[in-house]
Nucleic acid binder design. Structure first.
Lengths: 225, 225
DNA sequence: GCTATCCGTTGATCTCGGTCAAGAACGACG
DNA sequence: CGTCGTTCTTGACCGAGATCAACGGATAGC
């Protein structure tokens, strides 16, 4: 049974981080804790988003489904990330499909009353605008990198991006069990990914235990970029 | 001497398109017409943006300058596009450098009073939020495409994106005189771009006159994607 | 009009990463 | 514990596109 959400959990979301307690409390009535099992679809591309999600624990991938079998992962989210903010703002539907990579726990904020609440609290709008601005910057950076990075650089950038700063000593990556998802995100084949991981491992820059990767020499990875 | 801007020009900007005349009129005092000559830098990556720009005529490229000689074009803008909206919202400075590709005419709206105006008119905030949401969708699409498109597909997508719908009979592209910019945008080398253009020309799908490309068989280009 | 410079084009070669195929590790299930 | 099915790994080969280099054509400046 999911525990009732509280404002401390809401506060972990970047676009709500420094909101007044009163505003967060006002959201609780239409915020619910939600568990998603691995593989569960939370948002579907093209459909309107009824909720904004806050990922508290687990991992989520955002994929573009373009009809054809080729399905591209455009982002891999770790706690605490949010998604669905833009989907509720456009009538074109969600620009991606969100799938749980592993069993995850999230907050689901109903979009309609959230929008209504924001209508009366412009400060919330400002926060969201700033948040979307940062996301644009992030996407531009991704776009830039994919332009000229080779396979090793893509992997290094991915590993560094997901470096767990909370556990510097044993930085285990809690990410995609599925190597194919990482490969898709980096726009390389699983075979190439496997070879690059092998190279890094052989040089002692990373270690692999139970399929999970830990970074041993972040400075070496960074030197590649 | 630049003509005084009017609200009809402002209305051409997507995020202002259906604003009330009163709101647009309120912007006029801090909006000025600006001419930019080819090569002129309008915004610089990392620096705060003092203006939001509306491109009325000409062409602008957005480039990421990452220190190294490698400089990547992330977008090529045609009229009527806007840029700098996100730069004024984040304290991290502009996420790109904006350079005029040819002599261009723009509107420059001073950021500070614009933000102040928006503070009092939340409807303007909503429009901007919707606009940024659409841009995120656009960037995600770009990111997806770059994942698995080959050189020919990239070129076809670029040509179709910049197809001038106002001149269906003679759809001359008014874009980058510089082939190297197109190549950078598509993340291919100028040599490869040249070869692909050659192929399309040989098949009669496009025609080149004075360095400018016109599309003859858009349906063929579309079939590649 | 002549020359210099910069781009764009064309050709030859190389290389990174994709493709195809086989084998190894892992988890689920009976 | 063994079998199956899926995913990851490893190897051999191939091809799209990068690189290197030479040539052609446009624009600017004298």
């Amino acid at each position: 049974m999911p525990v009732e959400p509280n404002i401390e959990q809401l506060r972990r979301a970047a676009f709500l981080a420094d909101s007044a307690p009163a505003e967060l409390t006002a959201m609780l009535p239409f915020t619910e804790a939600r568990q998603a099992h691995a593989g569960e679809v939370l948002l579907r591309q093209g459909e309107p988003a009824a909720h904004v999600f806050v990922l508290l624990d687990g991992a989520i991938k955002l994929v573009r489904t373009n009809g054809r079998p080729r399905e591209k992962v455009v982002d891999a989210l770790l706690p605490v990330a949010t998604f669905g903010e833009t989907a509720m703002l456009t009538r074109h539907g969600c620009p991606f499909t969100a799938v749980a990579l592993e069993d995850s726990s999230l907050l689901a904020i109903r979009a309609e009353p959230l929008l209504e609440l924001m209508r009366g609290r412009p400060v919330l709008l400002w926060r969201l605008l700033e948040h979307l601005s940062q996301r644009e910057a992030h996407l531009l950076e991704q776009l830039e990198r994919f332009g000229y990075y080779n396979a090793a650089q893509k992997l290094a950038a991915y590993l560094l991006d997901h470096y767990d700063r909370d556990h510097p000593v044993e930085p285990l990556l809690g990410l995609p069990p599925r190597r194919t998802d990482i490969a898709s995100l980096l726009s390389i084949t699983p075979e190439t990914l496997s070879r690059e991981i092998g190279k890094f491992k052989r040089r002692g820059w990373i270690a692999v235990r139970k399929g999970r990767i830990s970074i041993r020499r972040p400075e070496r990875l960074n030197a590649l970029l």
